[in-house]
Amino acid sequence: MKVTLKIFRYNPETDKKPHYDRFVVEAEATDRILDLLESIKNYQDGTLSYRRSCAHGICGSDAMRINGVNRLACKALVKDVGNKVTVEPILGLPVEKDLIVDMEPFFDHYRSVMPYFVGGEENPKKEQMQSPEDRERFDDTTKCILCAACTTSCPSFWASGEYIGPSAMVNAHRFIFDSRDQAAAERLKILNDQYGVYRCHTIFNCTDACPREIQITKAIGELKKAIVTARLD
C-alpha cells in the first residue's frame, strides 16, 4: 500500500517559519511509522531530522505527534494510523529542527523532584528488604521511559512551561511510595506548589498518551491525596 506522510519541517538555519512536506512511501500494514521515516531519510530526503535510538519502545527517543496524538514512532503501526499520516514534533517544547525538540526544560522538571533513591543509613551493613506488597505499591510508575509523550500532551503544560508536568510526578511517585525511601516529605513539599500537582485538572491526555500504559492521572491523584492528608496510603 502507498502511505502519504505530511511531515512538519523546520530548519532554523534556512527557514523563517515551519512548513509541511509531503512524502509517499510504499509500506506494509504492519510497518511502523519509524520504518517510514527511515525510508524517507534513506531514499527521499536525507535532511529529515528526528530522534531514534533503540527502535523498540524502550529508550523513549522517538515520541512525536502522529495524526494529532502523542505516540512512539517505533510502536505506531501503519494499520493503526491509516494511509494518510501527519507527523509533527511533540507540543510545548521548543522545536530545534524538524521533529527534534529541546528536551532540556522537560529534564529540568524531572531533576527537580529528586528522581533518585534516598536511603536511611549512609553505609548500610546489609541490603534493605522490601515485601512484594510494598514493591507492588509503586510498580506502575517504575515503567516510565521519559519519552515526554505525557507531559507534552497536557494542556496545562502547553499553557505554562513552568508546570512540573505528569512525567516528573510519575517519577516522584515512584520514590515517594517506595517503603525504603526517606525523602517522601521533601518531594511532596516540592510538588505542593502552584506549578505542582494543582495544575493537573484530570484531563487524562497523559494517561491516553503513555506508550507504557502507566495510570498517570491515578498516580497524580495519589500524590494530591498524600499532600492533603499527609499520609502515604
Partner: peptide
C-alpha cells in the same frame, strides 16, 4: 465526577 475522582484516586483507573 471530578470530586469523586479527587477523593478516591483509585477510581481514576476507571475514568
Amino acid at each position: 465526577r471530578i470530586i469523586i475522582l479527587d477523593l478516591w484516586p483509585r477510581m481514576l483507573q476507571y475514568q
